[in-house]
Amino acid sequence: MESVALDLDNYRKLLKEYLLTHDETALYQAEQLSKLSVQHNVSPEEIIHVHIKALKELYPELPEEVNDSLNFLLEAMISYGLALQEYQHLREKQSALESEISVAANMQKTLLSTKKPEIPGLDIGAISVPANRMNGDYYHFIYDNDHTLGIALADVIGKGIPAALAMSMIKYSMDSFPEDLRQPSRILENLNRVVERNVDPSMFITMFYGLYNPKDQTFSYASAGHEPGFYYHKETDHYSEIEAKGLVLGATNNATYDQEVTQIEAGDCIILLTDGVTECHLGDRFIERDEVLDVIKRYMHLPAQEAVEHVYKHFERLQDFHLRDDFTLIIIRKDV
């Protein structure tokens, strides 16, 4: 048990001063000493030991009972000394873990990185912020030589490291699919099998996959139990939900997914999100979907990237800068 020896002379001096004057200054110095002792790993029993010694020097006639009782107190402090050491050890361990997690988080960022494509005629904004260090949300753009744009958005139920690991699996499965596999429903069906085979049954992944085809200006999509997004019709100035039925990934091994198609007109927007957006907490209640939409509407006049950032900042403020869940929002606008 290594520690810096308490300075007996100093302690005796302080104690004497206090016993004579009852001065607050001496107590303040005792407080300083206490802090320093904790810093230097001095355990409580050592302080009591020094106290006994100092007291004996000041009062050589110290009654035997007082001396014994202080030794009794010393015994009673032993476990606190151990707890202090354990605490310090755990603190070191924690900082080691922290740095390991930050390496993992950086690695995840690199692994799951996606480039927001620059596509003539489309204005795209995307933001994804993890609640903790690692993200259980994932979005990916696949811009092909045939100029179609695939948009994948997935959310692992749960957050943190297990969620992040599951997301890496989704990303690599998608990468391994043949290039001609572009139909949203087929992609989800394939991913469902991958998830069902490889992930613990208690873990669910929701996912939305959309495919924009500029040739016929259609947006095809399918959803695996994912939080519905919104569709903005410029002509009617109306927002509707992007609905699609389908089971979450990994629930059964042969799930099928309906594929919907919608025509996209100039000025229309596709808004995709994860439940980290719709399940923002306001005090002790969840925010309503209507309220979410109201906030999004407020920023829809901005370029897509600015809009998603403003919406994020709004909800971040609303929740006192403490996200409860990973937050992902994508806005795609077809330019007029």
């Binding site: 048990m1 029993e45 050592e46 030991h49 006994i52 030794n71 010393l74 015994e75 032993i78 476990s79 151990l82």
Partner: peptide, 11 residues
Amino acid sequence: FGTVDQARIAT
């Protein structure tokens, strides 16, 4: 052994 170490040994 001093009192502190005695207490530690006993623990």
